[in-house]
Computed example of a mutant assay.
Amino acid sequence: MSNSLAIAAVTTTLRNLISQAVAQELGDGIVTTQPPDKARYHHDKNQINLFLYHILPNASWRTMDLPNRVKPGEIGQPPLALNLYYIITFYGKDNDDILAHRLLGKAMHILNDYAVLNPADIKISLSESDLHNQVERVRITLQSMSLEDVSKLWRTFQTQYRISAAYEVSVVIIESSRFVKTQKPILTRGGDSEIDIESGKDVET
């Protein structure tokens, strides 16, 4: 299962996929991972900026143990299951908005084509994360955001609005490093008490 490098593995994989899109569309350009207020510092280059702006727990995995990791009678620490939220911003060379729109179209195209991340791409990006071995596939979903939501988001960034697209990436499962605990077996002998097999002492019920 994946470890604490899983978030970095997702970001790196997305950056690599988008870099390929830039090269295919315009032949040159860069992909950065900066906060939007600090992203644009290469005005002489085509640029796409990928920024992880929000993280939420994945509700469906919150109380689940990993398959085949917890045996009957054992108590496992649930994994840390996360949904990651990215915003992607586009800048054309010399602030040419037509170039920015070409980058927008190409990046959205490739993220749609790779809506389920290929484990091989993840492994190439950051093999140490073990995210490529995750039982649940990592999926990319374009987010539907109202104009009000977009305005609030950019006000949070404290910078001028740029054409952008928002995506959810889920689920990223980080396995717990805590040991699995085994419940103490209890033998019932009747009445109002039980016997703890390990200690041989009565346990009030």
Rank of each mutant, 00 (worst) to 15 (best):
residue 36 P to T: 13
residue 47 Q to W: 12
residue 90 F to L: 02
residue 200 G to Q: 07
residue 188 T to F: 11
residue 62 R to Y: 10
residue 22 V to A: 07
residue 134 Q to A: 04
residue 139 R to F: 09
residue 173 I to D: 01
residue 178 R to I: 07
residue 145 M to I: 12
residue 138 V to A: 02
residue 13 T to S: 09
residue 5 L to C: 11
residue 4 S to R: 14
residue 46 N to R: 00
residue 193 S to Q: 09
residue 47 Q to C: 10
residue 185 P to E: 05
residue 143 Q to I: 03
residue 110 I to K: 08
residue 148 E to N: 13
residue 203 V to G: 04
residue 81 A to Q: 00
residue 134 Q to S: 13
residue 189 R to E: 15
residue 89 T to E: 05
residue 18 I to Q: 08
residue 96 D to M: 12
residue 190 G to P: 12
residue 183 Q to G: 12
residue 187 L to K: 08
residue 84 L to Y: 06
residue 69 R to V: 15
residue 200 G to Y: 05
residue 111 L to V: 06
residue 173 I to R: 01
residue 124 I to L: 08
residue 17 L to K: 15
residue 29 G to Y: 01
residue 84 L to T: 06
residue 72 P to T: 05
residue 79 P to D: 01
residue 18 I to H: 08
residue 201 K to S: 04
residue 33 T to R: 10
residue 120 A to Y: 12
residue 37 D to S: 06
residue 119 P to E: 00
residue 47 Q to N: 11
residue 45 K to A: 02
residue 79 P to N: 00
residue 173 I to C: 01
residue 56 L to G: 03
residue 42 H to W: 02
residue 187 L to S: 14
residue 13 T to Y: 09
residue 105 G to H: 00
residue 87 I to F: 10
residue 68 N to I: 14
residue 180 V to E: 02
residue 19 S to D: 12
residue 195 I to A: 13
residue 158 Q to C: 04
residue 114 Y to E: 00
residue 120 A to G: 06
residue 84 L to C: 03
residue 159 T to Q: 06
residue 37 D to T: 01
residue 67 P to H: 04
residue 82 L to F: 03
residue 175 E to S: 13
residue 15 R to W: 04
residue 98 I to E: 15
residue 50 L to T: 12
residue 189 R to V: 14
residue 112 N to I: 00
